[in-house]
Computed example of a mutant assay.
Amino acid sequence: MDLNVELLFLLIAVTTCVGELPITGTLCGCKMVRQCYVDMLVDLHEQDEAMCIDDVEVGTSTYMVYFKALQKYCSSVFNVTSQYMTAESRNLYEVTVYMPNEDNEDKKNENVPVILMEAGQTGGVEPLRLILSFIERLVACEENDNMIQNVRWVFLPCTNPDGLEYTRFDRPDWAKNTRKLEGSGSYGVAISKNFDSHWNECEKVKSMLDKYYPGPSPASEIETKFIRNTLLKYKDDIKAYLSLRREGQHGLLYPHAFSDKTDDVDPRQVKIAELISLKVNQRGGGLQAFVNDSIYRINNKPMCGNSVDYAHAQGIQLPYELRVGFEKDLEILKTFQTVSANHDAALRASYFSGIRELHALVTAHA
């Protein structure tokens, strides 16, 4: 029997004895766990730590520990850096997941197609949990090797950590960062409205207390600069950009947010959104309709300063919002039907099937 398989069976047997994991055919969403990840899980188990993303309470300390562990054990496919810090001195992390195949081993420094995903501009736990689950499946699961051999995945896992912590412990409806605004007693700018894309074309938000206050000027916030500069850093190689958010009905939305203008929207953006939505709905069993449309039409009003519109203006081929709404959707669903205990995990698995479809579509045109 393969050593990886033996270790996996041993790990499942050990953790089952102490009641931490049921005996199933998968572990952390994997059919076959990468050796480095098995080593990490054994270490985590010995330290009495939760081992899979679905089993932990997600916060800034969670992903900090997780990234350190991944860097220690799986540095051959995983790397994390941080060059930016928020107003409350929290790190903004850039994660890359990439494993060149043998044919590309001597070409590591050459251009590789990039899929860039960032989460959490509007705060909330679920976008962060979702993007961590994507990282886990790409790093941990050998069956996904093909997804990291010909594409470099770049993740900005939490682009508003101050807002995340505020929503966790105080204001669940908060959608801004928490920087104290000069000359006022107010806090916070909406990162999702702070990009230099038609920033001053919407009706002016006068109150700094407003949930959607876009800031004193475009790119006034360190979080905005972090996302913008990462987009520009990989601009020549980015094939797709996804911004994960927790607002509204879940779906994959393409430009524009500032108007219903369609003359410069690539029909391929629309078609790929349709194909990915179809895949997510097939995998999710139709419990919640995963939509695809323009950001403007879903909002039914203009939203200026959107990062997807900014990416579109930079010439990035496939820019989207990936909206997730587990918490709100679940409350609505529970009023008229029974929702299974593993609903969230199943929904995350359906999203990953959409990400796998995105990878296939990107590499088919690379």
Rank of each mutant, 00 (worst) to 15 (best):
D145S: 10
E223M: 09
P255M: 03
I115S: 04
A119Q: 06
M64I: 11
R323K: 08
V38C: 08
V125F: 01
A50Q: 14
A311F: 06
V151M: 00
R137V: 05
F336E: 08
R129C: 00
V42K: 13
V125A: 03
T16H: 15
L232I: 12
D210V: 04
A119F: 06
F258L: 01
V14S: 09
E143W: 02
S197M: 02
R348G: 05
A13R: 14
S353G: 08
H250S: 09
D264G: 03
Y98V: 02
M32C: 06
E247W: 08
T335G: 10
L11Y: 15
L44H: 12
A257E: 09
M117Q: 12
S353K: 15
K31C: 04
V42C: 09
V114Q: 05
L11V: 04
Q317D: 13
Q337D: 05
H198F: 14
H198P: 01
N177M: 07
W174V: 06
R245K: 13
G29A: 06
D236R: 12
S76N: 14
E49G: 04
S197P: 00
K107V: 07
C304D: 00
F326V: 09
G59A: 11
G215H: 05
A349T: 05
G315D: 01
F258T: 08
L318T: 07
A219S: 15
M32D: 14
I276S: 02
L252Q: 09
W199F: 05
D103W: 09
A175E: 13
S89H: 14
A341E: 15
L116W: 08
I115K: 04
E321L: 11
N79Q: 15
F326C: 06
G120R: 05
F134D: 01
M85I: 13
L231W: 01
Y98D: 00
F9Y: 12
A175V: 14
Y37S: 11
G124L: 01
N342K: 11
Y37Q: 05
D329W: 13
S75F: 12
H198Y: 14
N299K: 12
A311M: 02
I332N: 12
R268G: 04
A366M: 13
K206T: 13
K261L: 10
V205Y: 03
S243P: 04
V265E: 08
V56P: 01
K328G: 05
A175S: 13
N342S: 12
F258E: 11
P22N: 13
I272F: 15
L10R: 15
T178V: 07
L278D: 15
F290K: 07
G163P: 01
C52V: 04
K211S: 12
K72V: 02
M32Y: 11
M303K: 12
T363G: 01
G286F: 08
S353H: 10
D106K: 08
M303H: 10
N146L: 09
L138K: 05
E88A: 10
S277K: 06
V125C: 03
C158D: 15
L347N: 14
M208Y: 07
A257T: 02
E126Y: 07
Y84N: 08
N281K: 03
S184R: 03
L8F: 10
K176C: 01
